[in-house]
Design a protein around this nucleic acid. Structure first.
Ligand SMILES: NC(=O)c1ccc[n+]([C@@H]2O[C@H](COP(=O)([O-])OP(=O)(O)OC[C@H]3O[C@@H](n4cnc5c(N)ncnc54)[C@H](O)[C@@H]3O)[C@@H](O)[C@H]2O)c1
Ligand SMILES: NC(=O)c1ccc[n+]([C@@H]2O[C@H](COP(=O)([O-])OP(=O)(O)OC[C@H]3O[C@@H](n4cnc5c(N)ncnc54)[C@H](O)[C@@H]3O)[C@@H](O)[C@H]2O)c1
Lengths: 206, 206
DNA sequence: TACCCCTTGTGATTATTTTCACAATCTCAA
DNA sequence: TTGAGATTGTGAAAATAATCACAAGGGGTA
């Protein structure tokens, strides 16, 4: 098995490869990529080696081929649809994020318990009542539920998402969720990042 | 020195301790906390031990005391002010995020290059022209610059923030920044989280 | 005070991740 | 076709992080 951190480096590899591709660069060495990504070249080679011999000895990596491989590894070759639950500040920001599309991701609909938000379209999107979650999941073929609801209701909402058949949750609420074993939760705790900075500032400057 | 991951667990410790405090629970064991946070009890004890003997043998940890210690470690005892650069979808969502205050953080102002956004107050906040960054930093005592600008201009904006005297950058643009050694950058790459989910879905279900 | 029980704090151990270093092998030019 | 030069792929070594296991104390009770 490969380190967990390996997968977390792939999105950055994908981005720089996309750039090379854009510049019509066909071959790239691990050394060259490393400079751009900010990791060591052996780290890149090791990461890629977990998924086969993807490069060409003496030459480097074929940009187009490696891009295709990374897409496959990250599941970007198939379009994945997202349901955003909680059409608040963060939910709407994510719904309007243009960066998702280029990674094979698409927000298909939003859901909220607040009646005043229903039907409101932000961009092309519809906000459905939370009760429509299960039916719309089937209708729109959504696979990932994005939780942007207040922490106090996050567990309840997660239960509903699981009930509706979602097997993957992307949780922005600062709460640990209890879910069945076959459901994956990815936690996104933004406070960790800013408090890490705060900690460093406190250390260095008090 | 302690593992990097140690600091990343402290925000969660802080949250559960706040809950205990709210429930007037004065003492808590590492075992009890571990259940709630979702890590092992020895992990918690080890994490805390890097910062001294914070518990009471045979009894557990004094909730109020540990809270105060964690605040100190994370630099939450002093209020830190943030400058959000890029008053777009994500920047405005962060500006309106109520969770920052309870961690000693406060958004003091926003900055944007787009004239049509200047002066617009979202909540109590003002959007300043980007050129006012250095002067407002002094005026408002801001320490951390939050970068929510398009990736294409992130490096330029980072340079301006460094020029203005910011020593800590919280970067949401999917770009590796080059900054002087004495400036800290915390990267927040949301695509990593969702693509990790996508990868797992691809593995399990194709 | 003496004793028992409980939980911390921490060296030692184990697991995981990264880095090193070089044999394998590919490209390209003559 | 051959040889020089380049870069991958990967075991082995080193570094980092998590877990174990238990001695060291502290609290409560009689
Ligand atoms: N705003 C940010 O930048 C930010 C940053 C980090 C984390 N978060 C977290 O993201 C979550 C949302 O934050 P926000 O700032 O967008 O809050 P918000 O109040 O703007 O939005 C929350 C939305 O959830 C809806 N909601 C409430 N209960 C619901 C339920 N039971 N079912 C469905 N929808 C429900 C509300 O109607 C509202 O539209 C919170 O958990 C917050 O801690 C937000
Ligand atoms: N929206 C999201 O949910 C989301 C999620 C993940 C990452 N991001 C990243 O965050 C960044 C912002 O995304 P967004 O969706 O808020 O985009 P946005 O277009 O809504 O906002 C960008 C803002 O930056 C301003 N801007 C442009 N150039 C500037 C400059 N040189 N100086 C100052 N301000 C400038 C624009 O006027 C605009 O207000 C992007 O890098 C994006 O990749 C956004």
């Amino acid at each position: 098995m490969f380190p967990k951190a390996t997968i977390s480096r792939f999105p950055m590899y994908f981005r720089v490869l996309t750039e090379y591709n854009h510049q019509n660069i066909a071959l790239v060495s691990s050394e060259e990529m490393a400079r751009k990504v900010g990791v060591t070249s052996s780290q890149i080679r090791k990461d890629l080696s977990y998924f086969g011999s993807l490069g060409i000895r003496g030459a480097g990596y074929d940009v187009a081929y490696l891009l295709a491989k990374i897409k496959e590894i990250l599941g970007m070759d198939k379009k994945r649809r997202l349901a955003i639950i909680g059409a608040g500040k963060l939910g709407l920001a994510l719904a309007g994020y243009t960066g998702l599309k280029q990674h094979g991701l698409e927000v298909a609909a939003l859901f909220d318990i607040d009646q005043s938000k229903w039907g409101t379209t932000s961009g092309q999107l519809t906000v459905f009542p939370l009760t429509a979650l299960a039916s719309q999941k089937e209708e729109l073929g959504m696979e990932i539920a994005v939780l942007t609801v207040p922490g106090a209701v996050a567990q309840t909402v997660a239960n509903m998402a699981v009930q509706a058949g979602f097997k993957a949750l992307w949780n922005f609420a600062p709460v640990r969720l209890v879910v069945p074993k076959n459901v994956i939760v990815q936690y996104e705790d933004l406070v960790v990042g800013i408090l890490t900075l705060s900690h460093h500032l406190a250390r260095k400057f008090g």
